[in-house]
């Protein structure tokens, strides 16, 4: 199974419409964080370090739908925390699907098998499973034994029931390229629709500021992982973003491409940094000093190459330049030529 043509068509027409309308800053993926509570506590995770009374807060379904409508992005990614903990998550997802948003529900999958009955398979809904490697690497990354096996069981169950399933993987500086390649084989063998990968980067408030990849090391690592890609590997992300990770092309960050909304409001400027919050999406776009962020513009951004900043840049390249479009076509039709 691959990304439905309707999704590709929706994204392509959306981007082209923004360009025709002359919109300078448009969102591509809404990062919707309805809660920060998680049932894991991965060392270094920057999303769960809050006092209990903050971890107990939840966005309501109405707040989630309003945010999606306000920002207008065709794709809504729901990370967290662990979204499946939210008692109203099925309602939130249903409302987003009704609004024809392509929803990526990001989960560590611990609760997934038990909660599958609460959801209906749809081309608009994808379970994006947090998988940081093969059994050994994944269980170490999430600081709990047995999670890999639980996730694999849940992936199989979701696929059996006709859900779209992808994986999302964050790679840290201790990643072994050969093991990562074996991990890609294993995920493809499971039958997932595609994989998403991103380098780890130190969230501003994350406790783990040392284990994340530096820019040059990132390029070398991804070059070793992605060179001569196997025919069967499918990535659920822009091929130009993968080229960017391998150092074949350079981009400036597009932080407004993946705007983040959570219990605090619209996060300035991106999913990783917390330089304050805006009450509305319009305020976020208009009042953020975007020139302060991105490669070479801010020390907090110095080594960042994460998908939530640079994937939108890659997508923009596809639709802005003939060269970018050509590269995308070649990388899509002949991925092994990479």
């Amino acid at each position: 199974m691959a990304v439905p043509v309707s999704q590709m068509y929706t994204v392509a027409t959306y981007v082209l419409a923004q360009k025709l309308k002359g919109v300078k800053r448009y969102p591509l993926v809404l990062m919707l964080e309805p809660l920060f509570r998680c049932n894991l506590a991965c060392a270094g995770c920057g999303k769960i370090q809050y006092p209990d009374h903050v971890l107990d807060k939840r966005l309501t379904p109405e707040q989630c739908w309003t945010a999606a409508e306000e920002c207008g992005a065709p794709i809504v990614s729901i990370p967290g925390g662990e979204p499946l903990i939210h008692p109203e998550m099925p309602t939130i997802v249903k409302g987003l699907v009704e609004r024809k948003k392509y929803v990526y529900l990001c989960t560590n999958a611990i609760l997934l098998e038990r909660k599958l009955d609460d959801y209906t398979p749809s081309k608009y809904l994808t379970f994006s499973i947090h998988m940081d490697g093969l059994r050994e690497e994944h269980d170490i990354a999430v600081c709990r034994d047995g999670v890999y096996e639980v996730a694999v069981r849940a992936i199989k169950a979701a696929l059996r029931r006709g859900f779209r399933v992808t994986t999302n993987t964050t790679l840290f500086d201790d990643a072994d390229p050969e093991r990562v390649r074996q991990f890609f084989d294993a995920m493809m063998e499971l039958g997932v629709e595609g994989m998403m990968i991103s380098p780890g980067y130190s969230y501003q408030k994350a406790p783990d500021q040392k284990n994340f990849l530096k820019r040059q090391r990132t390029r070398e690592l991804f070059e070793r992982i992605l060179h001569a890609p196997k025919k069967g590997w499918r990535f659920n992300q822009s091929p130009l973003f993968l080229d960017f990770l391998m150092g074949k092309v350079d981009y400036q960050c597009t932080p407004w491409g993946n705007p983040t909304y959570n219990i605090f409001g619209w996060q300035k400027p991106c999913y990783l940094l917390q330089d304050g919050y805006a009450a509305t999406f319009t305020e976020l776009i208009e009042d953020t000093n975007w020139d302060n962020y991105g490669t070479g513009r801010n020390e907090k951004c110095a080594d960042c190459m994460v998908h939530c900043g640079y994937e939108a840049s890659a997508v923009n390249d596809t639709f802005s330049t003939l060269r970018g479009f050509g590269r995308t076509v070649v990388a899509t039709l002949m991925p092994t030529a990479r």
Partner: peptide
């Protein structure tokens, strides 16, 4: 006055 919830939760501290 509250506990710093990020303190001591780094990967290095874990390892």
């Amino acid at each position: 006055t509250g506990e710093d919830t990020a303190s001591g939760r780094s990967w290095e501290a874990w390892v």
